Amino acid sequence: MTEYAQTVDGVRIAYDREGAGQPLVLVGGAGQFRAVDPATRELTAALADRGFDVVHHDRPGRGDSGGEPPFGLAGEVAAIRALLELVGGRAWLYGSSSGGAIALAAAAGLPGVDRLLLWEVPLGEEGGTDGAQFLAAIRALVAAGDREGTLRLFTEDIPGWFDSVRAGPQWPLYERMAPTLEADAEALAWTQSAPRRQLWASITAPTVVLLGTDTFPFMADAADSICRSLPDAERAELPGGGHRWRAADLADRIAAYLPAQ
Rank of each mutant, 00 (worst) to 15 (best):
V142S: 06
T155H: 12
V121T: 15
Y15H: 10
Y94F: 15
M219A: 04
R176K: 14
R139F: 10
G131Y: 04
L104E: 01
W161Q: 11
A194K: 07
S98Y: 00
L104F: 08
A220H: 02
G72A: 13
F71R: 00
A46C: 14
G21Y: 07
A251T: 14
L73R: 00
A14I: 06
W92E: 01
L250Y: 01
I203F: 03
E126T: 05
A136I: 00
M1E: 09
S96T: 11
R147I: 05
L153T: 08
A48E: 08
V27Y: 01
A187W: 01
R81W: 07
R12Q: 13
A187C: 06
V54C: 15
A107Q: 10
P231N: 03
A205G: 00
A137S: 14
R244V: 13
R17H: 09
P159R: 08
R41W: 11
G66P: 14
W171M: 12
R196Y: 02
R197I: 09
P217M: 02
W119V: 01
L211E: 00
A251L: 13
P60M: 14
D252H: 10
L151W: 02
T215P: 03
W119C: 06
A39W: 10
L117I: 15
G29D: 01
L24S: 07
F134K: 07
D224Q: 06
A103N: 04
W161D: 10
L258W: 09
V87Q: 05
G109D: 09
S65Q: 07
T40W: 15
D184R: 06
A201T: 06
G63R: 01
R147T: 11
P111V: 05
D114M: 12
A167H: 10
V121I: 14
T150G: 09
W190S: 08
L211C: 00
V36C: 06
E182W: 01
E182R: 11
